[in-house]
């Protein structure tokens, strides 16, 4: 199953994605891949890990080596891409993490992405669960690097702007060639009253809500001190709410 978090920047989608990872490693199935697909996000920090490189970097390296003709004739580039993706895969005991990193630079990525797509389509099914943190444009899904998502959770906060972004994301998903299963909205850092208002307005825009995460002082404190979210206690409000949402979505 591939679960993707997306939404307007600042709504806390990376936090919710990271908290989901914590839930899944503690109680869910073992084979978990986390993909940080938002160049502006900081999933590794949230999870307290330091990957050595990103997929974007290895893709650039590959492209440079092709352009500068450093690769020998007959070198199997598909196998090389597989190797490069593995170098970018950060393995921990609880999960593997792949940071997509920078997006494409100048020039032609047709061939490089073609190989990458093949590697990814072999890699992803090896995990029981894939959790992705995506920017609002869903770049890697739209380019077919990640083909198909089972559940998209669009994160909003109390603002109308976030709701409008959510509506745009739904439109964009409709236009994608990739298979996308369910698309649901999750409100983050909202009180009961705020959630009622947001939900009413959102449903009028055709959005379907899955639940909300309450404001959490413990979480704010961790973020203030620059600590990873792994330190958040399992019975904190945010973690309990995320657990509730995941179980409602049928993920755990």
């Amino acid at each position: 199953m591939i679960l993707a978090f997306t939404g307007k920047g600042g709504t806390g989608k990376t936090v919710l994605a990271a908290l989901s990872v914590l839930e899944l490693t503690e109680r869910g199935p073992g084979d978990l891949l986390v993909i940080d697909a938002d160049p502006d996000a900081n999933m590794p920090d949230a999870l307290g890990v330091e990957p050595e490189t990103t997929l974007g970097e290895v893709r650039e390296r590959f492209k440079r080596e092709i352009e500068e003709e450093q690769l020998p004739p007959g070198f199997d580039k598909q196998a090389y891409m597989e190797y490069l993706v593995m170098t970018a895969l950060h393995e921990t005991e609880d999960f593997d993490l792949l940071v997509m990193g920078r997006s494409e630079g100048r020039g032609c990525y047709c061939a490089v992405n073609h190989w990458l797509r093949r590697v990814m389509s072999d890699l992803l099914p090896e995990y029981d669960l894939v959790v992705m943190d995506c920017e609002a444009g869903l770049e890697h899904v739209s380019r077919g690097i990640i083909d198909g998502v089972d559940l998209v959770l669009i994160v909003v906060d109390h603002s109308r702007k976030a709701l409008r972004t959510a509506a745009r994301i739904v439109e964009l998903i409709d236009e994608l060639e990739s298979e996308v299963g369910e698309v649901r909205v999750v409100a983050n850092r909202v009180t009961e009253r705020e959630y009622r208002v947001i939900r009413r307005e959102g449903e009028r825009m055709g959005l379907s809500f899955l639940g909300r995460v309450r404001p959490d002082e413990e979480l704010v404190e961790l973020e203030l001190r620059g600590r990873p979210l792994t330190e958040l206690s399992p019975d904190s409000k945010a973690r309990r709410d995320v657990r509730e949402i995941l179980s409602r979505a049928g993920v755990v």
Partner: peptide, 23 residues
């Protein structure tokens, strides 16, 4: 080689072997 410079004759040969239904 291909115009994009990514695929030489040798690469094409290898690519076809791996992915006979490919482009």
């Amino acid at each position: 080689p291909s115009l994009c410079g990514s695929i030489t004759w040798h690469d094409a040969k290898a690519a076809h072997k791996i992915d006979p239904e490919g482009p």
